[in-house]
């Protein structure tokens, strides 16, 4: 277990404060604070715009004489309509179910495959490793048509499973690759010691390797969760009932009507729809970064 602590200790050690000797406040202001503020501005301006749009009344939205950056008479109407008159909450629930389960499935497959490809030696392991990565080259735009055929044959249309089973196709490759790198970074001696002590391979894997790989698994999970939360095309094609749609599809199919965009509600939905994922990141962003580390470097 000493080695375990050593590994973790090393991770905590890096990325510590990097104040340099002779670094003045003025220097830091120009070198760090102002650029950071600029980044924040560029990144968040569209979000400010969404927020301000979502609290403007319809007539104010189309009033081009006023300064569009501010709102004169803020209103929560769009939020109220979105939450009470569309199935937004139901769409959120659907999105959450699909994202959680497809993430879990992807992690399950990726952990097993990543472990297998990174730590076991057998013929073809390398080739399969590449093969998994190369699946990203498959262009998704048209493949949804043959995929629709598969989904129909399995009678999964309008069923959570249609998304839960297809999302992993674009989640697994990255997760597997990330975890492969992570598993490689865990010293072999730890596992071999357990094997000598009479543990089976599977026990060694679940008891020794997986706990150590937790940051990597967390990162892969967050990555997968984000992508499945935002997916659009498959969800549009495979889900039909109003009550089965996910947020991106439900919102666009309900709030773009004929020749009208309901901007206020669309933007309200964009913001509300991002909050769960944003919260996830605000709590776990450092773990996410830490988890990417080993995987990325060893990849």
């Amino acid at each position: 277990m000493a080695a375990t602590r050593a590994v973790i200790g090393r991770r905590k050690g890096v990325g510590k404060a990097r104040h340099e000797i002779g670094d003045t406040l003025l220097g830091r202001t120009f070198r760090v604070y102002i650029p950071v503020l600029l980044f924040i501005f560029i990144t968040l301006f569209p979000f400010y715009w969404m927020a301000i749009t979502s609290i403007k009344s319809d007539s104010e939205l189309l009033d081009h004489n006023r300064n569009p950056l501010f709102v004169i008479q803020p209103t929560l109407d769009h939020y109220v309509l979105l939450l009470t008159k569309t199935a937004f909450l139901r769409w959120s629930l659907n999105t959450a179910i699909v994202a959680v389960v497809s993430t879990a499935i992807s992690l399950f497959c990726s952990i097993l495959a990543g472990y297998s490809l990174a730590r076991l030696r057998y013929k073809g392991a390398t080739a399969i490793g590449w093969g998994v990565f190369i699946t990203y080259l498959v262009p998704p735009t048209l493949l949804f048509l043959p995929l629709a055929f598969v989904v129909a044959q399995l009678h999964l249309f309008n069923n959570y499973l249609s998304l839960i089973l297809t999302y992993p196709t674009f989640l697994i490759p990255f997760c597997t690759w990330l975890l492969m790198g992570y598993f490689k970074g865990i010293p072999r001696e730890l596992e071999e010691a357990a094997l000598v002590d009479g543990a089976s391979r599977l026990q060694a894997m679940t008891k020794i390797v997986l706990p150590l790989a937790l940051p990597g698994i967390l990162s892969a999970g967050m990555f997968a969760f984000t992508l499945s939360w935002n997916e659009f095309l498959y969800s549009l094609i495979f889900m039909s009932d109003q009550a089965m749609k996910t947020i991106p599809v439900g919102v666009t199919s309900e709030l773009i009507r004929g020749d009208e965009f309901f901007w206020g509600q669309l933007m309200a939905a964009a913001l509300l729809g991002s909050i769960p994922v944003a919260l996830l990141y605000s709590f776990f962003v450092d773990y996410f970064v830490a988890g990417m580390t080993a995987g990325a470097v060893k990849g």
């Binding site: 629709a148 055929f149 549009l236 094609i237 039909s240 009932d241 199919s253 773009i256 009507r257």
Partner: peptide
């Protein structure tokens, strides 16, 4: 059941239903 989608979503949905032979 009446299912509604926005105007430009109707065609990809129709095309995939035709390809899948189901919908």
């Amino acid at each position: 059941t009446i299912q509604t989608v926005s105007g430009d979503q109707l065609q990809p949905k129709t095309a995939s239903a035709v390809e899948a032979g189901s919908g």
